[in-house]
Simulated scan of single mutants.
Amino acid sequence: MSFERLAPEQHDTLDDVPEPAENPRLIGHGEIATTLASAYKAGKLPHALMLCGPAGIGKATLAFHLAHHVLKHPDARLAPETLAVPDPASGLFRQVAMGAHPSVLHLTRPMNDRTKAFKSVVTVDEIRKVGQFLSMTSHDGGYRVVIVDPADDMNTNAANALLKNLEEPPARTVFILVVHAPGSLLPTIRSRCQVLRLAPLEEHDLMTVLATIGQASPDDAAQRTALAERAGGSARAAILLTQYGGLEIAAALEKLVSAGRMDIASAHRLAETVAGRDQAIPFATFNRHALELLSDAASSSAVAGNLARAKSLSDTWQDAQRAISETETYNLDKKQHALTMIDRLNSAMRM
């Protein structure tokens, strides 16, 4: 199903899938949405919110729905007790979606003007836009909304710059930090935010998201359940698994990792598949699943009481995360990265 793309392209944009800023439907998270609407109506909306949970479950969509709500109802006392549903035909919706509303600042990974690729971090220059944004008077005396998405991607300088803004927040301003892993942020940032934890989507809600954006889901009930489990309640993960070869990539990686001896030919085939030209999404899927395998194995070892193995796997996860970041930052050879990652996982799992 095609639709009119309004939002600027992001580092993780998927074809024919609405960006959070242009998504009129929020599926799931009803209790938290109502809590936020009630807090706004009562004049008790925190100046900084941290929406935490796995990637792809709707955190950023909720952030933009809250922004839409406070802009549509500048007098909080007259606002409804549930979040307003954005009207795609309205000027407000289109302005917010296009990144053109003067009261909404959306900060994410910027484009590298030299390479024409998105940077791997939210830079300090992006966060510095907050100062200029807040120095301007709100056009109608209403709220101003700063959305950092995802805040996990801020580098150290960016995080410190944001902290200064959070320490002395202006009136009628709300910062919304979209966060996949709260532990990755400075404790001083976390302490200045109200943390709201969003749960992974239930199977029914996950399939509803897929249907809403015209993405096919399995006809068989058992296959739908299996997809929901493998996707971890993430709509984005489900789309990547079903539409971008993610299931095949995951199965191939798991087979290689579980083998007693490295299958060199199969490793090269998988590396070539995910590292080819215009294969950014399969490459990201490969990396994400590699990290998931390490994380799951570390957790299982810890639960079983094998703390030494858990520590080793955790260290390997850190090394793998660093390698992914360096490959993106310095545009290193992706096939060699994939082969090294497969070897790293194979060695780690045999311990």
Score class of each variant (00 low, 15 high):
residue 10 Q to C: 10
residue 253 L to E: 07
residue 250 A to K: 05
residue 122 V to A: 03
residue 82 T to H: 13
residue 232 G to W: 04
residue 148 V to I: 11
residue 63 A to M: 05
residue 329 T to N: 06
residue 349 M to H: 07
residue 292 E to H: 11
residue 182 P to V: 02
residue 178 V to T: 02
residue 77 R to F: 10
residue 271 A to Q: 07
residue 101 H to R: 08
residue 142 G to A: 12
residue 54 P to I: 00
residue 306 N to G: 04
residue 272 E to V: 09
residue 288 R to M: 12
residue 166 L to E: 06
residue 310 A to Q: 03
residue 295 S to Y: 09
residue 107 L to R: 02
residue 225 T to H: 15
residue 79 A to G: 12
residue 115 T to L: 14
residue 92 L to G: 07
residue 301 S to W: 08
residue 143 Y to V: 14
residue 26 L to G: 05
residue 95 Q to G: 13
residue 250 A to G: 11
residue 93 F to E: 05
residue 176 I to D: 01
residue 142 G to R: 04
residue 253 L to R: 11
residue 286 F to S: 04
residue 229 E to L: 05
residue 14 L to E: 04
residue 337 H to F: 10
residue 24 P to R: 11
residue 279 Q to N: 14
residue 262 M to C: 14
residue 205 D to T: 03
residue 78 L to P: 13
residue 253 L to D: 06
residue 283 F to V: 03
residue 70 V to G: 05
residue 306 N to Y: 09
residue 275 A to G: 15
residue 282 P to Y: 05
residue 299 S to A: 15
residue 92 L to E: 12
residue 308 A to V: 11
residue 93 F to C: 04
residue 134 L to C: 09
residue 287 N to R: 10
residue 325 S to E: 15
residue 42 A to F: 10
residue 299 S to L: 14
residue 24 P to C: 09
residue 134 L to N: 04
residue 143 Y to P: 07
residue 122 V to E: 02
residue 252 A to W: 01
residue 348 A to T: 02
residue 327 T to N: 08
residue 215 Q to F: 10
residue 262 M to V: 15
residue 132 Q to M: 15
residue 68 H to L: 08
residue 189 I to C: 05
residue 220 D to G: 08
residue 6 L to V: 04
residue 227 L to F: 04
residue 6 L to S: 06
residue 177 L to F: 00
residue 144 R to W: 12
residue 28 G to Y: 02
residue 215 Q to W: 05
residue 33 A to S: 07
residue 150 P to Y: 00
